[in-house]
Simulated scan of single mutants.
Amino acid sequence: MKILMVSMASQHFFKWVEQLEEAGNEVYWFDILDSKQKAARISWVNQIVGWKLRWDYPGRFYIKSKFPSLHSFIEQFNDRNTARIFEQKLIEIQPDLVHSFEMQISCLPILEVMEKHSAIKWAYSSWGSDMFYPEKIGISNFLMQKTLKRVDFLITDCFRDYKIAIEKGFNNIFSGVYPGNGGLEFKSELILPVSSRKTILIKGYNNKIGKGITIIKALTSEILFLIKDYEIVVFGADQEIKDYIKNNSRFVNVIIKVYLRSEFVENNELMKIMGQSYIYIGNSLSDGLPNSLIEAMGMGAFPIQSNPGNATAELIDDEQNGLLIQDALNQEHIEELLKKAILNPGRIEKAFSFNIISVKEKYDRESNRLKIVELYKSIGGNKN
């Protein structure tokens, strides 16, 4: 089958596509945001990059950073039309399937083209907040419904999003729930026993959706006393979190490492930290099933995680194998959950083996690779 993938350059996308190597398909990738360089890790894929600019003029990055208004003005004349270029490639390649990853970035810019070429099958993988938080990230209800009406195959990372899609008018083929990156590798040699774990791991994303700062504010003097023998590690943090910790005296004698988002932590290193973590905490207003949560649970960390739209409840049975944050903006609520976890080591011990086994059963990379290969075969054999 000839497949045209549409996505931005991202680790999740690359890991998904890698599952198709040697599966017998002819795979193309239209880099929808045009990172301008081919990805070596998927060198076997036909990559469409370097298409956006008419002229990559000298000093472009300097003008973009120092004179954004001028840069925006120049862009109007220098940027090629995404839909027009995509349509040219669509006609040239004549794929059996177009597969878009994420709605706002990879569906909406090509929606009119796909409506025009209605005979070509279109699959869409929802990521993160596509379904649950659309208008907050710039997807109108009208455009969502138009997209779902045209899409032939829907893939989600949680059942919540399938239910929302049905409510929004999707009535075509649901191809199933899969991890957004195609599956995860859990390295058992890095998984320490509960008694040897001395790290509290916090996901520090802090923006319109991620609310890592609420977790940090929940680390009161009482909580810090209870975890005084543990190292706190915050990854993917924004500057606001680093400044908050620096400017609050209660953190002075705390062993804490903060990795900014710009200080990218390699996945292997992060998995190693997860394998040493006693508790993992993530908090956001919207998400699907976060890959970092799945990784942390699979590596044995006890999870405390926000539950937007009950997506996380598909993986965590509250107060059994983890704790669910029901109010992502309430630091007192998160403080109580932290206290509940720390003061009940028996629950953490009990959840340890259960999480490792159950998460691996659902998200093991090799098992999911076989399922994904079969997924494309079933799509290929499905006639519109």
Rank of each mutant, 00 (worst) to 15 (best):
residue 25 N to K: 05
residue 211 K to I: 08
residue 293 L to F: 03
residue 381 G to C: 01
residue 89 K to Q: 13
residue 321 N to F: 04
residue 69 S to G: 14
residue 132 F to G: 12
residue 103 M to F: 15
residue 40 A to K: 15
residue 349 E to F: 10
residue 22 E to H: 12
residue 299 M to A: 01
residue 37 Q to G: 11
residue 160 R to M: 13
residue 183 G to N: 03
residue 254 V to K: 09
residue 269 E to G: 03
residue 287 D to L: 04
residue 18 E to V: 02
residue 9 A to F: 11
residue 44 W to D: 07
residue 260 L to C: 01
residue 281 I to H: 09
residue 57 Y to P: 14
residue 30 F to E: 00
residue 175 S to L: 12
residue 265 V to Y: 01
residue 336 E to F: 11
residue 194 V to H: 07
residue 179 P to G: 00
residue 107 C to W: 09
residue 251 F to V: 00
residue 130 D to A: 08
residue 149 K to R: 14
residue 226 L to T: 04
residue 160 R to F: 09
residue 372 I to P: 07
residue 357 I to K: 15
residue 359 V to P: 03
residue 145 Q to F: 13
residue 315 L to W: 10
residue 237 A to R: 03
residue 322 G to D: 08
residue 68 P to E: 05
residue 125 S to P: 02
residue 171 N to D: 15
residue 329 L to Q: 13
residue 111 L to V: 01
residue 260 L to E: 02
residue 46 N to V: 06
residue 196 S to N: 11
residue 134 P to I: 09
residue 122 W to S: 04
residue 199 T to S: 06
residue 142 F to R: 12
residue 194 V to F: 11
residue 220 T to K: 10
residue 206 N to Y: 12
residue 8 M to F: 13
residue 233 V to R: 00
residue 97 L to G: 05
residue 1 M to S: 14
residue 280 Y to L: 04
residue 29 W to M: 04
residue 362 K to R: 15
residue 118 S to K: 09
residue 285 L to E: 14
residue 285 L to W: 15
residue 102 E to L: 11
residue 89 K to A: 06
residue 73 F to H: 06
residue 171 N to L: 12
residue 311 A to R: 06
residue 85 I to Q: 06
residue 376 Y to N: 05
residue 251 F to P: 00
residue 144 M to I: 05
residue 255 I to N: 15
residue 182 G to W: 02
residue 221 S to E: 13
residue 298 G to D: 02
residue 50 G to V: 02
residue 191 I to C: 03
residue 246 K to V: 01
residue 331 Q to C: 14
residue 64 K to F: 11
residue 162 Y to R: 12
residue 139 I to T: 03
residue 94 Q to H: 13
residue 333 H to F: 09
residue 242 K to P: 00
residue 169 G to Q: 02
residue 348 I to Q: 04
residue 339 K to N: 15
residue 21 E to D: 14
residue 208 K to I: 09
residue 343 L to R: 13
residue 379 I to E: 10
residue 168 K to S: 06
residue 205 Y to I: 12
residue 298 G to I: 04
residue 175 S to T: 02
residue 312 T to D: 10
residue 268 N to R: 08
residue 234 V to M: 02
residue 347 R to H: 08
